[in-house]
Design a protein around this nucleic acid. Structure first.
Length: 602
RNA sequence: GCCACCAUAGCUCAACGGUAGAGCAACCGCCUUGUAAGCGGUAGGUUAUGAGUUCGAAUCUCAUUGGUGGCUCCA
């Protein structure tokens, strides 16, 4: 946002007002509807209704057309202060409004569900045309300020939403709208949505043969196909190597563990609702592990530790299983079985700051290499109001100080947000903004005093005393599944060559060029370049079209001229034509780009 | 889990109460091709599953399963 707060912008007033216009039109369509709330949101607005029947597409079209009519009526928006009793009388048939007014007057929460410090001093109504709503504004002065061609409510399907976001309360129908200053902006926005749909990792993943799901295997359990597994394995091998270079030691632990392990860690029964139910076997109960930390802790605990051994850094691509509500599953970004690029660092209190910094630097290196440069850091501290956190104040303060110190030392741009801590300690999260300007929480580094306490971890200090280590949890990718899902959408399937499942597509022009293509492919394979020959009967143009669709970085076209010269004609997936070059020259070029993990193709 | 919507060939879709079809992919031929899909043919479906209504169901009803958009949740 270039100029000030969204709440103060004209766009905000347009959207807020459009929400009222929509409510008016909806009430005309559904006179018995009960209205809830209708605030502006990012890119638009919504209004929640309690309706006698489901909304159809025809309803939405009717309402949208009616909205345009109302807007064209040039109705002024007028504000009026009313007393609580007057407000209650006016909305006596609107139970949701009554509840809102009562909460406003009693000073509990405002219309958006935010707690308010004191009872509202005044209640205001906004009226345009025939519709009056409980609202504190602001609005446009007149509906003429809204461009009737710059709104849409048919662009998105109605959705269910709980009254006041509480799943124990009424389920309402939420109608989403979008509104802009002019038609061009609306079209831009709709195009952005279309682009996001095209880039959807579920669609692209299917097209590129990366992964699939099978109801017979189970919901939320992705199956990686060879090309997806190759991409994933490339990432894993790369990070594993970086970690070894940074003093991490790979460990391997099982995917299930005795329930008592999770009782000790505190995950069970506290997070029981988001775990697979325990498995009973031989009088014992086992849990599909929801986290890797307890397993790594038991390795730490398997021997006596000296301060000289610390820091101990255990890393594992550890697969975990969590019960996610069925409605929350979404492609690779929300699954029930996923792999965390997990590592647990066991350090002395003095080592927290330097180790934390090293972990952050490692994450920065990972992101920068992938070209994920648009990210910000968020320091998550505990919510001072809440008692859901463990550990004493001094530890929390020290950890928070260390994290902020680390950010300052590294020159990170960061925000500090209360209530974003893990229950066992403060943390630093990296929020990445992808090519479509959407935010994703990726890597995380967390300081933990709790688990060492619960598992009674120790090391022998210089003076011979037993001391408690501190743990640092960190994961640059977070979940491999989610991370790759995000990469797919960010790159639109056009991965940097070192990650591309197929790096080179060889296209012989006629059958007689196939043996030559195969000999070139063999040379490429010799130096570790992933190449495929398309020896099918299709014409060259068709093969190029397929290669483009698969976003294969390099296409090598070869006919008589190339065979003659022991050359290949190089075409990039960006449609750039590098012309003919000797085979060895191309191999050197591709090898350099791949080895450098370059983001460009030449 | 909740609300709404959806489910037809491997993929994208058509048929909308009266015999299930197309394009792409696959397979087989022909063409032997120079930078964004040459031509012809073959095969592929108890219309997600199970009940029901009907003379007759892909089509209407109900249930189940799976998916989609949101909500809630995400240690």
């Amino acid at each position: 946002m270039s100029n000030g707060r969204y709440e103060d912008s004209q766009l905000y007033r347009i959207r807020h007002s459009a929400a009222h216009v929509m409510a008016q039109a909806m009430l005309e369509r559904f006179p018995e509807a009960k209205i809830a709330i209708g605030p502006p949101i990012e890119d638009g607005f919504y209004y929640d209704f309690d309706l006698p029947r489901p909304v159809t597409e025809e309803d939405l079209e009717w309402v949208e057309n009616r909205m345009k009519e109302i807007i064209r009526g040039n109705h002024p928006f007028t504000m009026r202060e009313v007393s609580a009793s007057e407000a209650l009388e006016f909305f006596k048939d609107q139970p949701y409004k009554v509840e809102l007014i009562k909460d406003l007057v009693s000073g509990r929460v405002d219309e958006n569900g935010n707690e308010i410090a004191a009872p509202a001093e005044k209640i205001t109504f906004y009226t345009h045309d025939t519709f009056t709503d409980l609202c504190r504004g602001p609005h446009v002065a007149n509906t003429s300020e809204i461009d009737p061609e710059a709104i849409s409510i048919t662009f998105k399907k109605p959705a269910g939403a709980y009254w006041r976001g509480d799943e124990k309360r009424e389920q309402l129908t939420r109608i989403y709208g979008t509104a802009w200053e002019n038609k061009e902006q609306l079209d831009d926005y709709l195009n952005r949505l279309e682009e996001a749909k095209r880039r959807d990792h579920r669609v692209v993943g299917e097209k590129l043969d990366l992964f699939t799901f099978s109801p017979l295997v189970g919901k939320g359990l992705p199956l990686w196909k060879p090309k997806g597994a190759l991409l994933r394995d490339t990432l894993e091998r790369w990070l594993r190597q970086i970690q070894i270079e940074n003093g991490y030691e790979p460990v391997v632990t099982p995917h299930i563990g005795n329930l008592n392990l999770y009782r000790t860690s505190g995950h069970y029964p506290y997070y029981k609702d988001s775990q697979y139910a325990p498995i009973q076997i031989d009088e014992e109960e086992y849990l599909l592990r929801p986290m890797n930390c307890p397993h790594h802790i038991m390795i730490y605990k398997s021997e006596m530790r000296s301060y000289r051994d610390l820091p101990v850094r255990y890393a594992e691509f550890g697969t975990v299983y969590r019960y996610e509500q069925s409605g929350e599953l979404h492609g690779l970004t929300r699954v029930r079985g996923f792999t965390v690029d997990d590592a647990h660092l066991f350090v002395t209190p003095d080592q927290v700051l330097p180790e934390f910094k090293r972990a952050v630097q490692l994450i920065q290196h990972v992101f920068n290499t992938l070209g994920l440069t648009d990210f910000r850091a968020r320091v998550g501290l505990r919510d001072p109001q809440s008692d859901k956190y463990v550990g004493d104040d001094a530890q929390w303060e020290r950890a928070a100080r260390d994290i902020i110190q680390a950010c300052d030392d590294l020159g990170l741009t960061y925000t500090v947000e209360e209530g974003e801590a893990a229950f066992y300690g403060p943390k630093l999260d990296f929020i990445f903004r992808d090519a479509l300007k959407r935010n994703w929480q990726l890597g995380t580094v967390q300081v933990d005093y709790n688990l060492p306490e619960r598992f009674e971890l120790e090391y022998v200090a210089e003076d011979g005393s037993r001391q408690r280590p501190v743990m640092i949890h960190r994961a640059p990718f977070g979940s491999l599944e989610r991370f790759i899902g995000i990469l797919i959408e960010h790159f639109n399937g056009a991965f940097p060559p070192w990650l591309s499942p197929v790096q080179v597509l060889l296209i012989p022009i006629t059958d007689r060029h196939v043996p030559y293509a195969e000999s070139v492919a063999a040379k490429l394979a010799d130096v570790g370049i992933r190449a495929e020959v398309n020896s099918g009967k299709a014409r060259m143009g068709a093969k190029i079209a397929i290669g483009r669709e698969q976003h294969i970085p390099w296409m090598l076209i070869m006919g008589d001229r190339d065979v003659e010269a022991n050359a290949v004609s190089v075409r990039l997936r960006t449609d750039e034509d590098l012309g003919s070059m000797p085979v060895d020259e191309f191999i050197a070029l591709a090898k350099r780009v791949i080895d450098e993990k370059s983001l460009s193709l030449s």
